[in-house]
Amino acid sequence: MPASKRAANRYYSGPPSDHFDGTLFFNPGGRMPGRFTDLLKWQFNGQRSKWPATSPSPFPQARPAARIEGSGLIVTMVGHATLLIQTAGLNILTDPLWSQRASPFSFAGPRRVNTAGIAFEDLPPIDLVLVSHNHYDHLDLATLRRLKAVHDPLVITPLGNDAIIAAAIPGMRLSAHDWGDRVETGNGVAIHVEPAHHWSARGARDRRMALWAGFVIETPGGKFYFAGDTGFHDGINYRLMAQKHGGFRFAILPIGAYEPSWFMAPQHQNPEEAVQGMKLANATFAAGCHWGTFQLTDEPIDEPARKLAEALAAEGISGDCFRAMRPGEAWEVPDTGASR
């Protein structure tokens, strides 16, 4: 559709770039999200696996330490794409979601099948929040509102998402950035906002009006990579991360919500691709996220973890190096790992 006939971007106004056409964001050289007819084809394909109503984690709810100083690194899974990263005296949350549904509605939409791995009341002081994009399973305004009231963290997010948050939560501390930006946050830590292959929307009329991204956390104890929500995209962004950052002590990579692949591949990677991403990005350790908490797609609840184990075995990588993390699981990540 010609730009002159499009609705104006309600979240962001800025100059065109290699991933922004002046109105909408896009994936350079990538694939567009499916059309509405594709969505209907998927929804009525009859291939959706039946998930259990509840799927308790084998780990009890964690009670994190207040701070982890220096080069120590403890990563605790809350659920889906929400993890607590503790290092260099800072507490960082990725895509925080404590609500019961990943939805604009309290009565409909994907429902949590296991308890959050950390009770909200047991969170340590939260300094930073990384919000990768505006889909409801990643940008949860109810949770951000609670975090503002109790912790008042700084939220770092890609362009346009700040407008959504600011409209709903006045006074929240926001820092919005384009791909390639670097943000100093103190304690020797900096956040790099990096490309992901995805898209965005809160409703039917704002598709691709806010940017999506991954993040690199640069610390005295090494670099950590949160890929956000992403399709594999021929490994292009993983190669870019290795070229730009040299490698990672630790990466958080999505491993779920990939079936059917003909529809999901532009936005979600499968476990085999996640293992290739770990290798291409030169990450020593990795945590699998985006699985087992909210049913978003067709695969069985336990398939991502099983296929991850198979992919690691095929590549000769120890399962101790890439874990499909479950709610409540806390991982004290070594600062030097065994050879992959």
Rank of each mutant, 00 (worst) to 15 (best):
A286H: 06
L130P: 02
H151N: 04
A176I: 04
A190K: 13
G214C: 04
R340A: 09
A142T: 15
F322N: 03
A204D: 04
Y225A: 10
N27M: 07
T143Y: 08
W291M: 02
S106G: 09
R67G: 04
G228H: 08
N45I: 06
L308E: 02
H151A: 02
K5L: 14
I156T: 05
H192R: 15
P56M: 05
R35A: 07
E303M: 15
F215E: 00
F26S: 05
R145T: 11
A88P: 03
A196E: 03
A163P: 03
L128S: 03
W291C: 05
N27F: 02
I165W: 09
A313C: 02
F322I: 07
A190S: 15
P300V: 11
A330Y: 06
P153V: 08
R63C: 06
L240V: 00
V183I: 15
G46K: 06
G292A: 15
V216N: 01
A8Q: 15
Y136H: 15
T293Q: 13
I68N: 05
F226P: 00
V131T: 12
G277L: 04
E69H: 14
H19N: 15
P153N: 09
L308T: 08
G247S: 09
P33Y: 12
L123W: 07
Q61L: 05
N27E: 12
P153M: 09
H151M: 06
I252A: 13
G235Q: 06
L147M: 05
P266S: 10
V183P: 01
I164E: 00
Q47C: 01
E315L: 07
D178I: 02
I156C: 09
L90E: 02
D137P: 03
R67L: 06
L97W: 00
S200M: 08
S103Y: 12
M209Y: 14
P304A: 07
D21P: 06
F26D: 00
T37R: 15
T94G: 09
G14L: 10
P64C: 08
Q100G: 14
L73K: 08
G70D: 12
I74L: 06
I126D: 01
F263C: 00
A196Q: 03
D302N: 12
A257H: 11
F250E: 03
A274E: 02
M172F: 13
D302A: 14
L144N: 04
G246W: 14
L159Y: 04
P195H: 08
F263D: 00
G34I: 10
L280W: 08
R111C: 01
Q267H: 14
S49W: 10
A65W: 10
S103G: 09
D229K: 11
T76V: 04
W199A: 00
R202Y: 04
M325D: 01
M325G: 03
G228P: 06
H197G: 11
R326I: 00
W331T: 06
I217M: 11
A210V: 11
W98A: 03
A227G: 01
A166S: 13
L84Y: 07
E218P: 03
L312W: 05
R145N: 10
R326D: 02
G277M: 05
A190F: 08
L211C: 07
M209N: 10
L240W: 09
W42M: 08
V275L: 05
P327K: 09
P300R: 13
